[in-house]
Write a protein that binds this DNA or RNA. Structure first.
Length: 205
DNA sequence: TAGGCCATCTGGTCCT
DNA sequence: AGGACCAGATGGCCTA
């Protein structure tokens, strides 16, 4: 895929730019050459001027071309970084049994709902009276501290979840980015299955 | 074959 | 001025 696109990219880019460059330089030289061919000094002067101008235009085109190529390269890099981040996000999300790769939009929605489900689980666990003796509560509290504190180095889960720590008490409206919208608001969350991420898994869509 | 997803190019806009 | 970000356009690949 990459090699195919690189071939297409270079060819299409060369076509679009070299075409205009050739057109400009060719037209300017052809316009000036007849006057010089008859040996008129003024004609040659004109050609010299036109040549100089054509060179400047060509230079401008080359500069523009280089700028465009560099911008394309940066944009490609930027999108690759974005995709890498999405892959990292997929890596920390629960995997599906059939091992199908989530699409970009599915990954974002799944992550959104997953964070919300974890938050809800923590919130419910915190309301239990004897949570200090419950191992699952300890796990949840560690999850909570992970989400509340600064991300610890080398921990993927904490590195991305810290951004959602502002939603420690989620409200069920779209105004809070850390909590999912109601079905009426967004249409992709089923609130009746969100309290357990075992049940939550099928609710991506 | 239509539709979904994706990568890339491109021009515009904003920011530093 | 140059880079980052964004959205539209385009074309390829895959699947139902």
């Amino acid at each position: 895929m990459e090699s195919i696109y690189s071939d297409i990219d270079s060819s299409s880019c060369d076509y679009s730019y070299s075409h205009t460059d050739d057109e400009d330089s060719r037209s300017s030289i052809q316009a000036a050459s007849p006057a010089c061919s008859v040996g008129s000094p003024s004609g040659c002067q004109q050609k010299k001027r036109r040549r100089g101008r054509a060179r400047n235009e060509a230079t401008v085109h080359v500069v523009k071309k280089n700028r465009r190529v560099k911008a394309n390269d940066r944009e490609r890099n930027r999108m690759h970084n974005l995709n890498d981040a999405l892959d990292t996000l997929r890596g920390v999300l629960p995997a599906f049994p059939d091992d199908t790769k989530l699409t970009k939009i599915e990954t974002l929605r799944f992550a959104h709902n997953y964070i919300w489900a974890l938050s809800e689980t923590i919130r419910i666990a915190d309301q239990r009276p004897n949570k200090s003796m419950d191992p699952s509560a300890l796990l949840l509290s560690s999850l909570a501290s992970c989400m509340a504190d600064a991300p610890s180095p080398g921990s993927d889960a904490c590195s991305w979840s810290s951004g959602a720590s502002s939603s420690s008490s989620p409200s069920y409206c779209t105004s809070n980015p850390g909590s999912p919208a109601s079905p009426d608001d967004c249409g992709y969350l089923q609130t009746d299955v969100a309290y357990s991420y075992h049940n939550f898994m099928p609710s991506i869509y």
